[in-house]
Write a protein that binds this DNA or RNA. Structure first.
Length: 486
RNA sequence: GGUCGGAUGGCCGAGUGGCUAGGCUGAGCUCUGCAAAAGCUCCUACAGCGGUUCGAAUCCGCUUCCGACCUCCA
């Protein structure tokens, strides 16, 4: 197995050679969605980014166990460690069972990710399915002396923890600054330290989702689920932990603290954080109300959208930016991506139609090594795409008869391009190209070619114009006529 | 206020101490019955001001502006 992969690690703020703990196995945990509302496009970007990472690791030959959780309990509104969680709140609003909320948005989440052609994770555990694991973990943290119980709620003791461990490894902040800058919040009387956070929260009478525990009826804190589930399925120490950048400062910081306090070992070797999708320079977020629902994007039914964009065009748009850069949304940028995507896919559709020659003028090896070099450099999909457009130029040139390629190199080129576009970037052609439809088009094109050969341009142009009106473009070339559907 | 990250050509976006991505757009050309597509060519940028250097957009400093996190959010 070849491995020249370099990954940017948030812990060191540097790119590091990727050395798995137990090659060829790789354990990767990614924080999934909290399923109390529709996923928006910004959420999708993170999961598309990790899909790319998952796909490339697999392509390199690693046996990846990709765990992505579903948060379906214990995620409170605000940081007050009290009151109802997001699900209960929404459930009351919609007059549904909390688990109906969870089901509804979990299904929606899966539907959307399927449209974006993301591969399902190896394991997709839920918080409510791992209550006992979370309770066990809290018990262990208490036993190790890093948590304390007050009136049925268990808090993590950040001050004690930070005497032995670095609580701010991920954020590089000074603990004193954090203490001084944390806002005065209500409901903190029970806590010993203002940075302490809840591992387990006492239920009130009206709390809908609650479970028995050694500390009475309650529910888990938000952070503990990821620690419990990652260690259950990937071990106390695993290779990659990922999530959106917005999770680093709080959620991931607390995850590391919990895991170290429980297992005396840092959970993940590499921490990867994907950057935000922005709209007019500001982060797309649920609370800011500037988010697009994927369905709005696909249909164009949103005030900020000029038209609809297909899921694959959007995926391509996302992959044209590096995962650690912010990506700014705009109609112009999306339209440019859409056109570029079509050009790429059109070139791919020419591959089976290319003619071979006895001589070869195409250096596929160099192209291949450039593609791998791009992805090996911290999954640099924009550079990879730039290299693939070089392949597009070559393919078009061969099709036009201006460049010659022999059979072996054509085979190599086809495999290379198809692997990178379909398997690694996860793009797919989205035409309704059924067998029958293709055959039908062959007949139509043959009729038009006959008319053209007879210089009956009235007929040939009326065929072309008719097809144009239903979104099918005919393109004549020396090698024959090809068609594309927009 | 603290911490961190940005500022790249008409737009989007990579990258990097010298060889100066890519996509989209615009102009011209080739091909073509005409289109379309494709190919070729052109428009060559790195916020500002200093410094280091033979050489900086890339390193350092300052300034301006923007964003993220520090409150739930991928």
């Amino acid at each position: 197995m070849r491995n020249n992969l370099v990954i940017y690690n948030t812990l060191s703020r540097k790119k590091e050679a990727f050395v798995p703990l137990n090659a060829p196995f790789v354990g990767m945990y990614v924080c999934g969605p909290t399923v109390y509302s529709d996923v928006h496009l910004g959420n999708c970007r993170t999961f598309v980014s990790f899909d790319l990472i998952f796909r490339y690791l697999r392509h390199l030959g690693f046996k990846v166990r990709y765990v992505r959780n579903i948060t379906d309990a214990g995620h409170l509104e605000g940081d007050r460690d009290e009151g109802d969680d997001k699900f209960a709140k929404k459930a009351k609003l919609e007059q549904l069972e909390p688990m109906e909320i969870v089901q509804k948005y979990t299904v929606g989440f899966h539907d959307v990710l399927r449209m974006f052609n993301t591969l399902p994770p190896s394991i997709e555990p839920t918080a409510t399915g791992h209550i006992s694991e979370q309770i066990e973990m809290v018990k262990q943290i208490i036993a190790n002396g890093y948590a304390y119980e007050v009136n049925g709620t268990v808090y993590f003791d950040v001050e004690k923890y930070s005497k032995q461990y670095d609580y701010t490894v991920l954020t590089n902040r000074q603990l004193e600054d954090m203490l001084n800058n944390t806002r005065e919040l209500s409901g903190q009387d029970e806590k010993k330290g203002r940075l302490d956070f809840a591992l387990w929260i006492r239920a009130k009478k009206e709390t809908l989702m609650k479970w028995p525990s050694p500390w009475g009826l309650g529910f888990p804190g938000w952070h503990i689920e990821c620690s419990a589930m990652s260690s259950k399925y990937l071990g106390a120490e695993f290779d990659i932990h990922g999530g959106g950048m917005d999770l680093a400062a709080t959620h991931h910081t607390n995850e590391i603290a919990q895991s170290e306090a429980c297992h005396h070992t840092a959970p993940a070797k590499y921490w990867m954080h994907t950057n935000m999708l922005t709209v007019n320079g500001a982060r797309m977020s649920k609370s800011a109300g500037n988010g697009f629902l994927p369905v709005e994007l696909f249909t164009g039914n949103h005030p900020l959208l000029n038209k609809g964009y297909s899921p694959m065009a959007v995926r391509f748009f996302m992959l044209q930016a590096h995962y650690r850069s912010t990506l700014d949304f705009s109609n112009e940028a999306l339209e440019a991506a859409e056109k570029g995507f079509r050009r790429l896919m059109n070139a791919l559709s020419l591959l089976p139609k290319l003619g071979v020659s006895d001589i070869n003028e195409v250096d596929v090896d160099t192209l291949a090594s450039k593609c791998y070099a791009a992805m090996d450099d911290d999954f640099n999909s924009p550079v990879l795409i730039a290299e693939l457009f070089e392949a597009v130029r070559i393919i078009n040139s061969i099709y036009d008869g201006k460049t010659k390629i022999d059979e072996a190199h054509l085979e190599q080129l086809s495999t290379l391009v198809e692997q990178f576009v379909y398997d690694i970037l996860g793009l797919e052609d989205e035409g309704e190209d059924t067998q029958d439809f293709n055959k039908l088009m062959e007949v139509v094109v043959a009729l038009r070619d006959k008319a053209k050969a007879e210089k009956d341009y009235v007929t040939s142009d009326s065929i072309r114009n008719g097809l144009q009106q239903i979104g099918i473009q005919l393109k004549d070339s020396k090698s024959g006529t090809i068609w594309t559907k927009s």
